[in-house]
């Protein structure tokens, strides 16, 4: 078997999710090549070459891959896919964008967000916001797969010494143009790679009050997340959202503050190792998944927690 992993990167280094995807590839078994596609991304290719277990790094460095538009990335993946039995990428907004497009161009299905590898053609994937796990077997000749990264450990970032080979890039599709990215600025660890996350919900009442969580996050080296209600209300930006439509995370410690625990929120955090809930309503469904529940007014409990740390 031979596997192509499409890496996510910021030109300089790999995004953590790529390392988890490499582990999923290792569980399928076979030679693993990593594709780095972008504009000015040679440094990311060098980083990729160090990842343990990688056979070759394919570098597609071209102006047409600026912003990694789905049309151009999908065409590139299609041009390479014929050499592989499996093509994998992380189920991030990057992977979810181009992979189904590449699959359709190849007339193949995509197996979305696998959480377990059973064999080279059989996988488990969550459906219904994680309320059920479907075991599915694919009959396609190339398996195009997105990976739920919280379900696979990260591969070692060093220890490998893969060769970097340049690959040809097809012409710009001309269908779409990258205009810009307004990235949220934060000094803190990234939500999906943090080992501790503290999230606030509608109970926080406003964005100003989120500073109470920031203070705790700084002490614990944690990231700050939020429920959809808090994002919709404009307390915090969209990339804070944890859940079925936001980010799926599984930190060692997840602290939910003023979050009720709707099915869609649980879908994004219920695989966390330890869950803490602080909520004034003892009936809130979040307590059903919490290892430690504190029934309290957050405006008293959170400052007290801050002091105790």
């Amino acid at each position: 078997m031979s596997i192509l992993v499409i890496a996510e990167h910021d030109n300089a280094s790999l995004v953590g999710a790529t390392l988890n995807t490499v582990t999923a590839a290792q569980q399928i078994g076979g030679d693993i090549d990593l594709l780095i596609a972008g504009n000015g991304c040679a440094a990311a290719a060098q980083a990729a070459a160090q990842v343990a277990g990688v056979n070759r790094v394919l570098l597609a460095d071209d102006a047409s891959l600026e912003g990694q538009l789905a049309e151009n990335v999908a065409n590139l993946v299609v041009s390479l896919a014929g050499n592989y039995t499996h093509v994998l990428t992380a189920a991030t907004t990057f992977g979810k964008n181009f992979m189904p497009r590449a699959a359709a161009l190849l007339d193949m299905s995509q197996i979305s967000e696998i959480s377990e590898v059973i064999s080279a053609d059989t996988f488990v994937r969550p459906v219904y916001a994680g309320n059920a796990m479907a075991k599915v077997q694919s009959s396609d000749s190339i398996k195009l797969i997105t990976v739920r990264t919280t379900k696979f450990d990260a591969a070692a970032e060093t220890g490998g010494s893969a060769a970097v080979e340049a690959v040809a890039v097809a012409a710009d599709s001309g269908l779409s143009r990258f205009v810009g990215l307004a990235a949220s600025e934060s000094e803190r660890v990234e939500l999906t790679s943090a080992s501790i996350v503290i999230s606030g919900g509608r109970g926080m009442q406003n964005g100003e009050n989120f500073h109470m969580l920031d203070s705790i996050a700084d002490k614990l080296g944690a990231a700050v997340g939020a429920s959809r209600a808090a994002v919709d209300a404009g307390f915090v930006p969209n990339d804070y959202q944890v859940g079925q439509t936001g980010k799926v995370i599984a930190p060692d410690l997840y602290i939910a503050v003023g979050i009720s625990g709707a099915i869609q929120h649980l879908a994004g955090m219920k695989d966390s190792k330890t869950i803490v809930a602080i909520n004034k309503d003892s009936e809130a469904p979040i307590f059903q998944v919490a290892d430690y529940g504190l029934v309290a007014d957050l405006f008293e409990a959170v400052p007290e927690l801050d002091k105790a740390l």
């Binding site: 193949m108 299905s109 197996i111 059989t122 488990v124 969550p126 459906v127 994680g130 309320n131 059920a132 796990m133 479907a134 075991k135 599915v136 077997q137 694919s138 009959s139 396609d140 219920k270 869950i275 003892s282 307590f287 998944v289 919490a290 290892d291 430690y292 529940g293 504190l294 029934v295």
Partner: peptide, 19 residues
């Protein structure tokens, strides 16, 4: 292109405590 072999319940979390 896919066959659903089975659909299972997700693993349940052990009950927690109220502090």
């Amino acid at each position: 292109r896919m066959t659903t072999i089975e659909v299972m319940e997700p693993p349940a979390r052990a009950a927690g405590v109220i502090v």
